[in-house]
C-alpha cells in the first residue's frame, strides 16, 4: 500500500466524479436536504419554540446523525454493479477510498451549514444559554463531530454494500455502536459551547474528535483494499 502520485490522482478523480454525479442526479442531493430540513422542522414543532441547551443539543445531533446516514449510506451503491468492474480495472482501492473520504469532508461541510443553519433559523438559540460567547467553537465542534461521524460511515457503508440483501438497515445496525463515542464527545462539546464553560476546558474535545477522525480514516484506508479485492 504505497501512497503514490497516481493514487492521489485517482482519489481526486473519484471525489470529483462523486460530486459531479451528486449535482447531475439532483434528486439525491435534494433528498438529503429535504430530510435534514424536515427533521429540523419536526424538532421545531415538537419543542414548541422552547428549548433548553441540553435538548437543543440532543435534537441537533439526532438530526445530524440521520442526515449523515442518508447522505453517506448510499455512497457505495454505484459500486455494486458494472461500475465496480470498471473501477476495479482502472482505480486502485486506496485511491477509491481516499476519494470517498475527500467526498465525505465536502458532505460534512455542506451538512454542517445546512443543519446548523436550519436550527438557528427555526429554533433560534436555546433559552437559558445566555449570550453566545463561543460561536467559533460551536461551528468547529459541529464540523469536527460531523466529520468523525461521516468518516466512520464511509467505512461502514463500504462494508454494508458488500452484503447483497438489506444493506440499508445493516448500515444502521453496524454504524450506530461505532458512532456512540463520537456522539458522546460531540454532544458534550456543543453543550459546552452553549454554556459559559471556558475555552480551555473544552479545548481537548476538538482534539479528540480530530484524532478519532484521523484514526478511523487511516483504519479505513488500511482495511478497504481487503473489502474491495473480492
Amino acid at each position: 500500500m504505497a501512497l503514490s502520485l497516481r493514487t492521489l490522482r485517482n482519489a481526486w478523480t473519484v471525489a470529483r466524479l462523486e460530486w459531479q454525479l451528486e449535482w447531475r442526479q439532483g434528486h439525491q442531493l435534494a433528498a438529503v436536504g429535504l430530510f435534514a430540513v424536515a427533521s429540523v422542522y419536526v424538532a421545531f414543532q415538537a419543542s414548541d419554540q422552547r428549548t433548553d441547551p441540553a435538548s437543543w443539543t440532543a435534537m441537533l445531533w439526532l438530526v445530524y446523525l440521520f442526515s449523515g446516514f442518508t447522505a453517506i449510506g448510499r455512497l457505495f451503491d454505484r459500486e455494486r454493479s458494472d461500475v465496480r468492474r470498471y473501477l476495479q480495472w482502472t482505480a486502485d482501492p486506496l485511491g477509491l477510498i481516499l476519494g470517498k473520504l475527500f467526498h465525505s469532508i465536502l458532505t460534512t461541510t455542506a451538512l454542517t451549514a445546512l443543519v446548523l443553519g436550519a436550527f438557528i433559523l427555526f429554533l433560534g438559540w436555546p433559552q437559558g444559554a445566555g449570550e453566545l460567547t463561543k460561536p467559533a467553537l460551536l461551528v468547529l465542534g459541529a464540523w469536527l463531530g460531523g466529520l468523525s461521524i461521516t468518516v466512520t460511515l464511509v467505512f461502514v457503508s463500504a462494508v454494508a454494500s458488500q452484503v447483497r440483501a438489506g444493506s440499508g438497515a445493516l448500515g444502521a445496525v453496524l454504524g450506530l455502536p461505532l458512532l456512540l463515542p463520537q456522539l458522546i464527545l460531540s454532544t458534550r462539546l456543543t453543550r459546552g459551547a452553549l454554556s459559559d464553560t471556558p475555552w480551555a476546558i473544552l479545548a481537548e474535545y476538538p482534539l479528540f474528535l480530530a484524532a478519532i477522525s484521523a484514526g478511523t480514516a487511516t483504519l479505513a484506508c488500511i482495511l478497504f483494499p481487503y473489502i474491495w479485492r473480492a
Binding site: F155, V159, Q162, V163, L174, L178, P181, G215, T216, L219, A220, L223, Y226, I227, A230
Partner: peptide
C-alpha cells in the same frame, strides 16, 4: 474476509 475487516476495525475502536 468482510467479517475480519469489521472485527479489526471494531477491536481498534
Amino acid at each position: 474476509r468482510l467479517a475480519a475487516v469489521y472485527n479489526v476495525f471494531a477491536f481498534v475502536m
